[in-house]
Design a protein around this nucleic acid. Structure first.
Lengths: 114, 114
DNA sequence: CAGTTGTATCGATGTTCGTCAATGCACGGG
DNA sequence: CCCGTGCATTGACGAACATCGATACAACTG
């Protein structure tokens, strides 16, 4: 740990407006191919979709889909409404905005706005 | 798999402008508390920082910091420049925009723009 | 009330991942 | 030329996770 490697000492840098753990929780919910496929399906449709339809569009079983939907729900990315036997899941505005922003950042050539 | 649970069949929904795997890769890089702490440190400073300084600000050892910096670099979130014995890491514009966007989404009360 | 269907939960399993101790490597100084 | 320093890599270990089969639960149907 040399003394002249960096110009100045780094303060605690707790200038973050949002706690780091909150961003990590959101990123962890998005950090799975199956979950992101489910979220993409839900964001493409204004109509809520039931679990049995979602199962047909991802290469995993129904218990796994329920498991992932639970994680997405706990992250605030989807909502669930039970009507009779079925459970209808829908993407939240947060999910739409996150996917919209990330998609824009990954397509645009990194125009530094901040 | 009932016939009348959902109004219509769900098409393949490949309307995504960005491949799912690309978003997953970015989310996985952000889905760790240590990595996000390093990235926050780097985004708070315009000056690149060397590894020995970063090590002092996270509760893990130097090999682990190098490991995380490698993941962040492969995700396009940081760049590295070697000067003499030291390696200086800096946040990319992508990292600044991602943290800015996510921070804004998690503080604002979900104003549906999309 | 029994049977069926849609969904959630439980246990187990294989894999991925974060972490560390030890080592290797490049560079600079005596 | 040897040694110290900063950083990267390796191997190993434990924890977390994604997945599945089996089962439980809820609701509609006959």
């Amino acid at each position: 740990m040399g003394a002249q490697c960096c110009p100045m000492d780094t303060p605690d840098a707790t200038t973050a407006t949002v706690p780091v753990s909150r961003i990590v929780s959101l990123a962890r919910a998005l950090a799975d191919e199956t979950r992101l496929a489910l979220l993409t399906l839900l964001t493409c449709y204004q109509q809520p979709l039931c679990v049995c339809h979602l199962v047909e569009h991802v290469p995993v079983g129904q218990p796994t889909v329920s498991h992932h939907l639970r994680i997405l729900r706990e992250a605030g990315l989807v909502t669930v409404e039970r009507r009779g036997t079925w459970a209808y899941y829908a993407a939240t505005p947060l999910a739409r905005q996150v996917l919209d922003d990330l998609g824009r950042l990954l397509t645009e050539p990194a125009t530094a706005s901040a």
